[in-house]
């Protein structure tokens, strides 16, 4: 289709083709911690057909009643721009940061992983947990619950390794993220 010089407006508007490939972005949204704010954000995603791969929310500044919502989403660059602009339009939204493009950032997820087994498998699960720096937070004669923190990929890898060793249940927090460096 049309190729033309991409004149950018500020930093916001990457004029990109709709046919571009889907990208995964982690977006951090600072919102007023008020009733219904999560429903607004989720409703925006479902109503406009955007993906949510993961979503976490918690109050981060009690005195100012601010919460941070971290959404991992995917879409073409044009859709990602739309998502950010749509989020910025919501009245209780203070700030929208795309951690994937705006400088280096950190992402962490926590998982609680329950493994059932005895004998060699039990020993092996402990050994792998050690390698991944997972802690045992609950134990019975025939089970462990591991707590592990890391990037989504690392959590996935850990869970995959636990699969043949008696994995029976997983609970994950979803991604939380923050920009590196001194700025907020």
């Amino acid at each position: 289709m049309s190729e033309r010089s991409n004149t950018r407006g500020g930093t916001e508007f990457l004029a990109v083709s709709k046919d571009d490939l889907s990208e995964r972005h982690t977006i951090s949204v600072l919102v007023d911690n008020e009733a219904g704010v999560l429903a607004r954000v989720i409703g925006l995603f479902s109503g406009r057909g955007y993906n949510i791969e993961s979503l976490t929310v918690a109050e981060t500044d009690v005195s100012k009643h601010l919460s941070r919502i971290t959404v991992v989403t995917s879409g073409t660059p044009m859709i990602i721009e739309q998502i950010k602009n749509q989020l910025r339009r919501l009245v209780p939204v203070h700030k929208v940061t795309d951690l994937t493009v705006e400088g280096p950032s950190l992402e962490r997820e926590m998982a609680l992983v329950k493994v059932q087994g005895t004998g060699e498998k039990r020993v092996e699960s402990m050994r792998i947990a050690d390698i991944f720096r997972a802690h045992v937070v609950d134990a019975t004669i025939e089970s462990f619950v591991f707590e592990m923190t890391g990037s989504t990929e690392k959590v996935n890898a850990f869970i995959n390794l636990m699969q043949p060793l008696g994995l029976i249940d997983v609970s994950r927090t979803g991604v939380v993220a923050i920009a590196r460096g001194p700025e907020a």
Binding site: E12, N85, R89
Partner: peptide, 27 residues
């Protein structure tokens, strides 16, 4: 409008580059 350079003046950034790629957005 395949051959045009597009200027788009809108108060709502989400209207820009929603359906049509524009060259010069003005918010």
């Amino acid at each position: 409008s395949p051959g045009s350079k597009k200027i788009h003046v809108d108060i709502d950034p989400s209207s820009i580059n929603k359906n049509i790629r524009v060259d010069i957005p003005v918010v």
